[in-house]
Simulated assay, not measured.
Amino acid sequence: MKKILVLIPAFLLAFQISKAQTEKGSQTLGIDLQFMHQKSTQNIFQSSPNPYASEVKNTNFSIGPNYSYFIADKLDIGVNVNYAHTSQNSKNSTYPNNVTSHQYGATLFLRKYFMFGDKLGLRAGPYLGYSRYDFRSVDTSTPTKTDNYTAGATMGLVYYPAKKLGLAATLANFSYSHSKVKADNSQIESTNNVNFNLINNGLLLSVFYVFGGK
């Protein structure tokens, strides 16, 4: 009986900590990190009877701060800004090519939290984003710029190892994007894309500090 009386306050304290982390008025400030490396090989068939092998390596790294405010219990709104560097190396017998790009962007998001206890849960919601890509290829002296407008929704895992510390990982991302490509301030083309990415397309991790609230 005494053990039960001791455990009840401890359970209530853990519940209050979890509630305080996602209650109205709480705020988070953190950083997003992402790294992805992909390598693929394919055979290219053209008018020539002999195909040639093409090997493509893609490396992407991004980093940026994020901030959110809980406008209601288990519902926050926020913004993140990021910088990303991407390099693509293509090797084949006919058309070797190296491309690098720099991306600067910002995203506004809304997220709903679904907690499975005092530490672990899921969060999901829509977002709107804008980014600017600067591309440069070793095969051309003219860099290109791409303005990218994106709308979509994400779902991620969230974990609180301590009262003021949170960790998160994006599990899935669905997005629609509209892009405008320019060179020498003249528009070259406009494209629209629909994407669905899972965790294996590049793990996006977030570390954040929780403050405010009651």
Rank of each mutant, 00 (worst) to 15 (best):
D139N: 12
G129F: 13
F11H: 11
Y209N: 12
F35M: 10
V210W: 03
S87T: 15
R111L: 03
F135K: 04
T41A: 07
Y83T: 12
K112L: 01
D73F: 14
G121A: 04
L165E: 04
L5Q: 07
H178Y: 11
F11P: 00
V207I: 15
Y69P: 06
I77H: 00
N82S: 14
V207M: 10
A168F: 03
N97T: 13
F11K: 09
I44C: 06
L33K: 01
R132D: 15
L29K: 03
F15L: 07
V6M: 13
M115S: 09
G125Q: 06
V194T: 14
N97E: 10
S47N: 13
K163F: 09
K119M: 04
F61W: 02
K214V: 06
K2A: 05
Y133C: 14
A20C: 05
N192F: 10
D134Y: 07
S186Q: 11
K164R: 02
R123V: 00
H178T: 11
P96G: 00
L128S: 13
E189V: 06
N173D: 14
E189L: 08
R111H: 08
K19S: 09
Y209H: 11
I31G: 03
R132V: 12
D73V: 14
A20Q: 07
T191Y: 09
T94S: 06
S206Q: 12
Y149R: 00
T191G: 09
K182G: 00
N201V: 05
F45Y: 12
N80Y: 08
V81P: 00
T107S: 12
T146H: 01
Q187W: 05
L198W: 11
L204A: 15
L128A: 14
I188N: 09
Q187R: 07
